[in-house]
Design a protein around this nucleic acid. Sequence first.
DNA 1: TAATTATTGTTGCATTTGCAACAATAATAA
DNA 2: TTATTATTGTTGCAAATGCAACAATAATTA
Lengths: 208, 208
Amino acid sequence: MAKTLDETRLLQFKKNLSNCVNVKSKVFYNKELILSYSPIKKKIGFITEGKANIVKTDKEGNTTIMRDLKENDIFSNLFFQETEDEIYIISNGETKVIFIDYYNIIKNCNQNCPFHNSIVLTLFDLLIEDNKQQNEKIELLSKRTVEDKILFFLKQRMNKNNIFKVTTSYKAIAEYLFVDRANLMRELKKMEEKGLIEKHEKTIKIKS
Amino acid sequence: MAKTLDETRLLQFKKNLSNCVNVKSKVFYNKELILSYSPIKKKIGFITEGKANIVKTDKEGNTTIMRDLKENDIFSNLFFQETEDEIYIISNGETKVIFIDYYNIIKNCNQNCPFHNSIVLTLFDLLIEDNKQQNEKIELLSKRTVEDKILFFLKQRMNKNNIFKVTTSYKAIAEYLFVDRANLMRELKKMEEKGLIEKHEKTIKIKS
DNA sequence: TAATTATTGTTGCATTTGCAACAATAATAA
DNA sequence: TTATTATTGTTGCAAATGCAACAATAATTA
């Protein structure tokens, strides 16, 4: 089956956006605030270049990375309910984002505009893609042990040669898995002793 | 701000569905299989009555409830990537579901059909709502301790009088929180001793 | 280059958690 | 009604996990 969201379609999407609704494109440098929860201005963001994180800070000040976002991912403050915790989207390196106004999508366009229909359908598929990623994260977090979490994480990201390279840091991976960094290192060592993986600094070979 | 998805709109949505795309409505009794992962037939389901669960079974046979679904929620096999685990949607009591064919939504309709546009926009908002619920679940699972998970869960579901009634079972709640049931009971007792809650069988009063 | 800051790798220890098991009660089916 | 099955409440115990702390590198900045 053909991939739903191929390059051609995404390129068309970006073109259509500027033809139809009011969009703003913006570049963010490392660790800049891209979007925060706001009950008034409902925006959808689309990452055209770079990476970002959905970050949550609770009232004790503990910060956790809720999601990793990359090129062609969407995000929105529409996706978050009001909560005690503060939720932000933060750039991770240089990141280029297109902002789309939610009301423009839903209302403020002639419904017969062919750009508009195409945009809504692409947004629909982008949302499905995001939904899929969230389910994967929930599946990951449903794993009972840290070892199971690590294995699930590695298998999802390894290449054809069963190799995963840590391009970020072990600290970031521990945050993503919601586990203690020291424990992550310990479990990786145990897994190596068990023969499940081979680890050489930032390169891991999965052997199961 | 007005609620995006009100009753009127959802009623209209159901009417439009039958006017535009091919839909099938079906009733399921308790614990029946509503949908399973299928790489061929991509369907979107919409619950008009009752409840359902997204359930995952891993290769060791451990079963976990990934999500709770209720009236007006949508689900789809589009939301799941192929994985070692098996993922199903199972009815929880008598449940009425409308099935919508994905390709009908995306392609097989005259794009100027006013029903179609309205349907896609409602599906879009339903997807956003689902996305929001998933983020809430991720936020819940990001909590470090079982106590934090319980408190977050209770505060989200308590009524104006800070009371939460267990309508399902403690077993089901433990599954939803991905924690051991015995430990859930133990933590609830500790929380009562600390004065955080008051528990009388299936009624919990949150005091913080 | 030197100084500063961040990451990695490691360990001991206390705490949390899951598992197993069981009795008591409640709910359901025969 | 009685038998059967499911849920609740509880505990001991072993295992998993997080926390704190530290040295050794690596990366970044002045």
